[in-house]
């Protein structure tokens, strides 16, 4: 008997995987990984959150439902995860408080990785956010949600093509009916344990003068903060005059980022974080 072969078959069996998921709700002691859950408003983030944690964060069919972050935990394949549900935003340019909360958590909160929930029926607009997240971090799983609705509208979304273009795993789901959540869990597990490593696509085709400016700044940033995982993105934000990034350069928040995970993140500004009702 070959025990390895047997386990492999188990992992593809949905029964086994569901049994593997342990919803921990608010009980989140000693987690192994922290996951940020980002996405446009009304793409079903909270539904995914509830399905994984067993919590009943209020979900509603309208954008702007979640404006502060909610946290919950689950255990899968003997690893404990803390899931942080971020406010739904269209971008991470931080023009309003909800965008700032989402952006700051992905950047300074240093989650182990980020799950971006995108609406399969409005892929183009949703990808704007996904691409911005990919600029900040390469540890991303795309949850291609609302596949059932896309099907109802006669849309066919090729998730493999999408995964190839984005350079990170893409999991099609219908969180409302819990379709695809097993695969999502499995992918999360693989990314967390380092079995899958993303090579994300970064913005391309920017105008030449921009490219040059970015190069100069990236070089300086890399010298000042060696190990900074997203120098290119920081350069872009500095060029755009982003206040909280300027602050992070000044007060050393960026230096801590460069030092890598395990450090206490410096949360800039008046970040009010709490579970919403």
């Amino acid at each position: 008997m070959n025990p390895e072969l047997n386990t492999e078959q188990c992992e593809t069996c949905p029964m086994h995987n569901s049994a593997n998921l342990l919803k921990l709700g608010l009980d989140m002691q000693d987690w192994d990984y922290v996951i940020a859950l980002a996405g446009n408003p009304n793409t079903g983030k909270s539904t995914v959150f509830n399905a994984l944690t067993g919590l009943r964060q209020h979900t509603g069919n309208w954008p702007g439902k979640t404006v502060s972050r909610a946290e919950g935990g689950f255990e899968y394949a003997a690893k404990k995860y803390k899931l942080v549900d971020l406010p739904g935003t269209y971008s991470l340019l931080a023009t309003s408080l909800d965008e700032e909360i989402a952006r700051d958590f992905i950047l300074f909160g240093q989650p182990d990785f980020t799950v971006v929930v995108v609406d399969a029926t409005r892929l183009e607009r949703n990808l704007n956010l996904a691409l911005q997240v990919l600029e900040i971090t390469d540890r991303v799983v795309i949850c291609l949600n609302l596949m059932d609705e896309a099907q109802r509208h006669g849309l066919q979304v090729d998730e493999r093509r999408l995964a190839k273009d984005l350079g990170v795993p893409v999991v099609p789901t219908s969180a409302r009916s819990k379709d695809g959540l097993e695969l999502l869990l499995k992918t999360i597990h693989e990314v967390a344990t380092g079995k899958t490593v993303g090579k994300p696509r970064r913005f391309q085709n920017e105008p030449p003068e921009l490219k040059q400016a970015i190069q100069i700044l990236v070089k300086q940033l890399n010298e000042a903060f060696p190990g900074l995982p997203n120098a290119r993105w920081v350069a872009l934000r500095l060029l755009d005059g982003d206040e909280s990034l300027v602050q992070a350069v000044q007060n050393g928040g960026l230096a801590e980022l460069a030092a890598g995970p395990g450090q206490t993140p410096a949360l800039p500004g008046n970040l009010e974080l709490e579970a919403s009702s």
């Binding site: 892929l123 691409l131 979304v157 273009d165």
Partner: peptide, 23 residues
């Protein structure tokens, strides 16, 4: 700058979405 950046972003998103979605 900001507009240029957004434009790049949108072009990229459209490109990828067009390839992945069949209407």
């Amino acid at each position: 700058f900001h507009e240029k950046l957004m434009e790049t972003l949108y072009t990229n998103a459209t490109e990828i979405a067009d390839r992945a979605v069949t209407r």
